[in-house]
Design a protein around this nucleic acid. Sequence first.
DNA 1: AAAACAATCTAGCGATTGTTAGAGTGAAAG
DNA 2: CTTTCACTCTAACAATCGCTAGATTGTTTT
Lengths: 240, 240
Amino acid sequence: MKPNITKSQLYEHVSRIGKALSSPKRLELIELLAQGEKTVETLAAQARIDMRLASAHLRALREARLVETRRAGKFINYRLSGEDVGRLWVNLREVAEEHLVELRIALAQMTAAPDALSSESRASLLAKARSGDVLVIDVRPAAEYEAGHLPFARSMPLAELEKRLADLPADKEIVAYCRGPFCLMSDEAVRLLRQRGYTAHKISDGVSEWLASGLPIERQPPVPDTDGEQLRDIHSGERP
Amino acid sequence: MKPNITKSQLYEHVSRIGKALSSPKRLELIELLAQGEKTVETLAAQARIDMRLASAHLRALREARLVETRRAGKFINYRLSGEDVGRLWVNLREVAEEHLVELRIALAQMTAAPDALSSESRASLLAKARSGDVLVIDVRPAAEYEAGHLPFARSMPLAELEKRLADLPADKEIVAYCRGPFCLMSDEAVRLLRQRGYTAHKISDGVSEWLASGLPIERQPPVPDTDGEQLRDIHSGERP
DNA sequence: AAAACAATCTAGCGATTGTTAGAGTGAAAG
DNA sequence: CTTTCACTCTAACAATCGCTAGATTGTTTT
């Protein structure tokens, strides 16, 4: 028996992960899931695709074991199957940004240049947030904030920002973040804040990038809503 | 203008990298290139595929900007376009190993259980190699050793191991490594050494894994052979 | 100039993939 | 029980991909 016969199977298995990462829609779904557990409907809405198409892509991700499911009543919640999946997404995006000039150009065209975040600037931001020198706001939907957020960050969803402006100190420097470098919500928030006279800027980090750089995130203790969802594993079998 | 129209293009660009990683053959080529610059012919031979097929796969990798080319006379040398590409390969393989049980089973069936390498055991191995407590041998082809190898490692290609046994101290513990966890050369070396009465075991690390864990590698100063190759960039343009 | 050689290009094939749309499932609400 | 709702499954299409094999390009050797 030749060893190479089975050796190529090793690469085939790894390529299953690669295949899962080879579709733009699936990458978008992974980034959304990196913000926390979501239902198929939510994912479809946020990625602006048909729910049936989202379901098909999620199936592909599930078969590559990059996501897991959990039924909660009528809903099925998807989540990344580990922090390493988020790290892989960040790693993939970083390599793309490093080597694909077209991507850098497209990014520069659509988002404001964020503060580059080296490990030192991350540490100093953390220190300034702790001391209260700056106010870090998380402009993602509240559910995503609750699933995990940067330390000392306050939830201030973009959709509610305008009517909650009174909650923000007028004299303090504000730092906004959202889902990551590809997300435009922090840009939008900064635009609005500056227009109203605030000193605001954004950072490109999201929770995944923060985690990938080795820093900790804060999590609300999960509040069991109403009488608690029944948790059951589904999709335990492989495809026939 | 909707922002999502262009936002999906960002994911499309990243998915170009994902597509490049979605083929087992291309992954094998990446692992081979992580051992150092190689010609198309060498890559085809080592991956046991037709040179024309190798060329096609290398083209796909080149278009994803994961590899670069350099003409040296009649030959064209391919290399990874950065250390981050090697790290990405390691990252991808680790996620696959973590989540795909089938891969772990296949690995266990074909290779001996290697010493698990945590950062502490890497550091202690390095210390023992420095002090001479163990002899670390690199059983890859000599060209790959020259392109970069673990600190204090001695080159001892598998093909020459048997006739160079006299060079090895009979009383010292020997640690063998090769291209990485998927490579069988270190298994083969350990088998041979133990058969001849040596105390030998393997580690799963290759140069990429060592680098990815943040440790340095040693490189021979590149010796310009004969009158020096003329170095020219080729394939500067994109596909038409 | 001709021959040898490394590598790429091209054409063609079967298989796989992304997407759409309709039908079906299983849990909860009426 | 029936209806509603979230989601999955199935069929079907065009588009793309992996591979093979023949022809071609560009460089070195003779």
